[in-house]
Nucleic acid binder design. Sequence first.
DNA 1: TATTGTTATACTCTATAACTATA
DNA 2: TATAGTTATAGAGTATAACAATA
Lengths: 156, 156
Amino acid sequence: MAKTSKLQDESTAFNYATLDRFVGYHMKRAFNVVQADLQETLKPFDLRMLTYTALVLIADNPDLSQTQLASAMDIERANLVVIVDELESKELIVRDRVPSDRRVYALNITLKGRRLLKKSTAAVVKHEARLFAGLNKNVHGVLVGALSEFHANHHS
Amino acid sequence: MAKTSKLQDESTAFNYATLDRFVGYHMKRAFNVVQADLQETLKPFDLRMLTYTALVLIADNPDLSQTQLASAMDIERANLVVIVDELESKELIVRDRVPSDRRVYALNITLKGRRLLKKSTAAVVKHEARLFAGLNKNVHGVLVGALSEFHANHHS
DNA sequence: TATTGTTATACTCTATAACTATA
DNA sequence: TATAGTTATAGAGTATAACAATA
């Protein structure tokens, strides 16, 4: 834990002593890696993490409203608008009108959207398999379980 | 895995089937929670996650250069400039000149910086303890180990 | 030529308030 | 009045290119 001058002593291991104790720090670093790789993975499909996530949720939950989707994605309704705009302009989804309540849209995936989703999901599955190949099955399970439970416990 | 209309059937559980398989998705959700809580934790000290992290690394690694710090934080040199500017303007750190190489700065924490760091770190420790109180010791260890190893394996 | 710190710039993600149209 | 979607806007975080000073 000696504090040596970095300029005079390049060989000394970097001191992460304080940060290493924090789970949040490790989560950020790890997520940065995943985020960067996922971005590259989705680029050929002209999708980002947010647009891909929205497309998945719309496909899995027919007639979703924008408010419901924003809530599911943990983002503000206002910020979802441009995401839905983008998916709609690419004809990957449609905003269906709901006769019983003319305020809301029922979001639904198109055939074109379903085709893109199939290909992009295959790429994402490969990306996950490649990134987490080093993790053994048990650790993988504990990791997902812990992260999932953590979110469930703390999400308002 | 039935796809029921969300507008007609509000009671049906939301379908996360596709996303639930992805570790990256769980990492993002969990990190969002930590990030939001940490932000609130650091607000009384007028620090953000990035400024706090920089302050910690400067304290633990005397005479750090900006390039070294940017590398340690996984951010670009260009983006670090404003962070160092902010810490310096608050007199929490100093940019020391290095006679042997007049291109670089040797970053060092001030007494004022050290005092703020002590108080803010105590708050961050509490924030971590509170957030992860639900995790048992074993899971906590596996989580940190997995995230840390993952970053080490994939960081270029 | 190469490197350090810097500026400028642009893009993404996020947060808030205020508006419209419907209920 | 309350809610769904929208617009506008501002603040962060991030990525890239180009520059001056120095090596």
